[in-house]
Amino acid sequence: MEDKEILEKFANPDSRNLAFNQLVRKYQQKIYWHIRKMVIDHEDADDLTQEVFLKVWKNLENFRQDAQLYTWLYRIATNECLTFLSSKKRKFFLPINDVAAELAEKIDSSADISGDEIQLKLQKALLKLPDKQRLVFNMKYYDELKYEEISEILGTSVGALKASYHLAVKKIEEFLKQD
């Protein structure tokens, strides 16, 4: 179902639930994986994905249709991730490196994370990046979004995003070359 059709059906109280169910089914995986790559842990990603869709449910009526629906969803998910990660740092008085170390430890020990050595090393390299740079990298490299779309989601200029991505690639490749 097209976004336009989902929004039209959502505007009608009789077909609202059906339309929202369609929306969740259409975007749940994109949103879940976007969040999962940021928070690593499945339980956290599950909680945050539900929170994102609850916010969408509450605010979809106010959604301005001059923006793309999926960039709006990404923006909500991105904000949830950043809020979650910063509250995690504040809650335990952890510096950024300790949160990254905690998440890296999950990559090694979690039963629902598997891959060859270099793939796991790539995931740990990503955790060395600042949160926002990691977001940019994930959206460009894994989700293959255009810079213009990422710009709309993060509210950052295309030039700054290009610079951030290339710097991230450089840092990751440096890390991969290390023992």
């Binding site: 629902d112 994370i113 598997s114 891959g115 270099i118 793939q119 995931q123 894994y142 990751i172 490749e173």
Partner: peptide, 14 residues
């Protein structure tokens, strides 16, 4: 190694 040499593999499972 460069990023282009790596396949985009999802290591996370649900």
């Amino acid at each position: 190694i460069t990023l282009n040499d790596l396949p985009k593999h999802n290591v996370y499972q649900v």
